[in-house]
Write a protein that binds this DNA or RNA. Structure first.
Lengths: 186, 186
DNA sequence: CGCGCGATTGAGTAATTTCAAATCTAGTGG
DNA sequence: CCACTAGATTTGAAATTACTCAATCGCGCG
C-alpha cells in the first residue's frame, strides 16, 4: 500500500528508493472502520491524510445543525481540515470514513521537516496545493454559474465512480442542494 | 513600490538585500489604466500579478453571457487565472483593472526558476498557495451554508475598504447574488 | 416477515431572480 | 452655477427555483 503513495508522489517528482524510504519515514499509517472519525470538529486536527483504500468525507456543520460536504476523498486523494491543520487550530470540519479505510498521514511538523529535508517534496506539495487551489476555484465558479442540474451532471462526468459508492443525500450536500431536489433532477 | 512586494514576501520569509535583488530580477513591472485588461479570456495568461497600487478583478463569463466575479485584488494581493497560468492554457477568466493599477508580475517559467534558485521563495509560494486554498474552502462553505444577507455581512466584515471602492453590482456578483437582491438587503 | 436506510413524491412555502421602470449621484460642459 | 448625461442603485411585481415537511416507496438483510 506504500506503493500507492509512491505512485502518487512520482506522478510529480521522481524518487530513488532511498528517497522514498526517507519520505515514508515521516508518515504514519492508520486504518479506520466505516463510520469512524479521523477528525472531529473541536478536536485538534494534526494530520493530513492520504487515502490508499476506502473513502473519507469532510463536512461542515453550520449553526442550524445542517451538514455540508466539503470533499470526498477516495483512493489517491488527500484530505484534511486545512485551516485547522496548517494553523494548528481546533478542527471546524469533521472527517468521516464512509467505508473501511486505510490512510497514510503526516503531521504538520513532519511535513515541514520533510520539505526542508527533501527539496523535491516541497516541490511536490507546492504543485499539489496549486492543483487543489485550481479545483476549488472551479468549484466556486460552478456554484455561482450553474444550476443544480448542471452541477449534478458535471459531478457525474467528473466522479462517476463515486455515484456508486456514496448515498445520493451526501452528493446533494456536496453540490449544495437538498436531497429532494437532487432526487427530482431527471 | 518594490518595497510593497518585499514587505509581502518578508511577512513569510526574511531576505537579505541581495536575495531580494535576485527575487525582483525575475519579476516585471507594469502599470495599467482603469478598464484595461491584464488578461482576456481566450488569450494566453502567462503572468501572475502582484498588485502594489490600484485594484484588479478576475471574472468568469458563463454561456449565457453572465459575469461572475471570482476575486478582487487590491494592493498587496496576488491575482491571475490560475488554471491557465499554471497549465499554460488559454485564459478562461478576464482580469480587469477597476482603477489605475501598478503591478509586479512573474511568468510561470520565471517562477519555477526562482523557486529552484532560491529555496526560500519556493517556501513562500507554498505557504501563499496554502493560505489561498484555505480561503477558497471557506468561501465554498460560505456559499453553501449562508444566506445572501449573511454572506454580504461577512463580506463587509472582511473587506470594509472594498465597499467604498467597488460598485455594489460587482460585490453582488462576487457573492453569487443579483444586484437587485443585494440592494434589498438592509 | 419486518426493520431500517435510502430514495422518491406531493404540496405548500421561502428565497431569489428577472424584467422593467424610477431614482439617485457625480462629473462635465456651457 | 446649472443643466445634462452616464453610471449606479433602488423599487415593484411576477415568475422561477429550490427548500421544507410529511408521507410513501423500495429493497437488502437478519
Amino acid at each position: 500500500m506504500e506503493s500507492v503513495l509512491r505512485r502518487q508522489i512520482e506522478a510529480i517528482v521522481v524518487l530513488t528508493d532511498e528517497e522514498f524510504q526517507k519520505v515514508i519515514s515521516y508518515f504514519g499509517m492508520r486504518k479506520y472502520k466505516k463510520n469512524q472519525y479521523p477528525v472531529q470538529a473541536g478536536d485538534p486536527a494534526p494530520n493530513d491524510f492520504f487515502v490508499t483504500a476506502g473513502l473519507i468525507q469532510s463536512s461542515y456543520t453550520d449553526e442550524q445543525g445542517k451538514d455540508h460536504i466539503v470533499q470526498f476523498a477516495p483512493e489517491n486523494w488527500w484530505i484534511s481540515d486545512p485551516q485547522s491543520y496548517h494553523n494548528s487550530l481546533p478542527a471546524t470540519l469533521n472527517l468521516l470514513c464512509l467505508e473501511d479505510t486505510q490512510t497514510y498521514f503526516i503531521s504538520l511538523e513532519n511535513r515541514e521537516k520533510l520539505c526542508a529535508d527533501l527539496h523535491k517534496m516541497e516541490y511536490f506539495f507546492r504543485k499539489k496545493t496549486q492543483a487543489g487551489y485550481i479545483a476549488l476555484q472551479r468549484r466556486i465558479i460552478s456554484l455561482m454559474s450553474q444550476s443544480a442540474k448542471e452541477r449534478y451532471d458535471q459531478f457525474i462526468q467528473l466522479y462517476p465512480q463515486l455515484l456508486q459508492r456514496v448515498p445520493k443525500a451526501l452528493i446533494a450536500s456536496y453540490l449544495g442542494i437538498s436531497r429532494e431536489t437532487l432526487s427530482r433532477l431527471s
